[in-house]
Design a protein around this nucleic acid. Sequence first.
DNA 1: GTCTATAAAGTGATAGAC
DNA 2: GTCTATCACTTTATAGAC
Lengths: 206, 206
Amino acid sequence: MNDTATRGRTTPSREAILDAASTLMSRHGYAATSISRISTACGLPASSIYWHFGSKEGVYLAVLQRARQALVAGLPGTVVPGADVPRRLTAFLSAVAEVFDRHPHDLRLLVGISMLEETACSAARAELADYRLALRRWLADSLGSVFGVPGTAAPAEDLAGFLLTIAGGASIARWFEDPDASLPVGDLHVALSALARSRGVLDDAR
Amino acid sequence: MNDTATRGRTTPSREAILDAASTLMSRHGYAATSISRISTACGLPASSIYWHFGSKEGVYLAVLQRARQALVAGLPGTVVPGADVPRRLTAFLSAVAEVFDRHPHDLRLLVGISMLEETACSAARAELADYRLALRRWLADSLGSVFGVPGTAAPAEDLAGFLLTIAGGASIARWFEDPDASLPVGDLHVALSALARSRGVLDDAR
DNA sequence: GTCTATAAAGTGATAGAC
DNA sequence: GTCTATCACTTTATAGAC
């Protein structure tokens, strides 16, 4: 992968290649997605793909970057509206569920990274770390707003970690058994309230 | 994949091939694990692998079957010991965490299946369904024992689904950021108690 | 059951005309 | 920027001696 990755940011052909690669890689994984299959899927010859991205890893990196940018751009603000904690929690969880539903294949894309050789593709690994961190920060800040504590406070960070775990698990469940499954927002409301109470950031009153 | 998969059930060479394939496939995925790499890893020629398993898919299927059998054989009974619900829940969750820690790479193996072509490898897909179902049944029956309801009751099934989601998510978190992470048993105790209460199978008393 | 040798196809990547 | 043509290599899988 060379610096050709920085050429021609948003040309139509570049986007067409990324669309095809994105679909194939999220469906079959990185290793099983060959350049020739991307080529036939988008109708452009292999050499065009190499001209745009320099290597197969370059294609992958660009796919990941585009996915992260789309996710981050679609995140609502971290100031959650609502009169009291239960209402704010409900509003927040429905926002999370919406983001979750809007990015159905992202985890499959990310999983591909961790299957790569340890030695290779450190740029893709950095991209993965950025992706996960951006989500975690948004969750923690929003949860802080819900419970009226700083987003950097331990309870907010803890609950964000718990919620991120659930989101990952729900993503797994979605692609293993039910493609249309969303987040269990009702149960999450109950569980997060209880966890907040156990950490002293929510009164015992319902 | 032909019927050679049924030959010589537990010969040493067969096990050596499965050991190597299991390691490589859980680390790099199905597509990135070639027969030649398995061959060099276990010291046997490619033709021996084909003699034992008939095809690459045959190797994969055998790896999955062995993993499921090992998991199922290691599950404790579904009658959970303990004087009251909180104690039984604690005992159950530590049993779950132990199983979780003992099978660190199973999810990575299973993820490989869902990356295969839709048309191919229906046997592996059936194996995946069996694997997940066995876990879910054990969880539901054990949770029924914890809360004193039948394992087929809706609350037990619901909580089992929730717990399976968390286990999947924790598995993701483990391989994405912290290889040594286990299940958050403390938080799970709080969360599952609250969910049980919301379903009326646990008194409001702590 | 294991070995060597090899066939047939697919892979990542590049050269050079246009 | 896209095209055709191609190289060097790896892939799955098989044939046949031992």
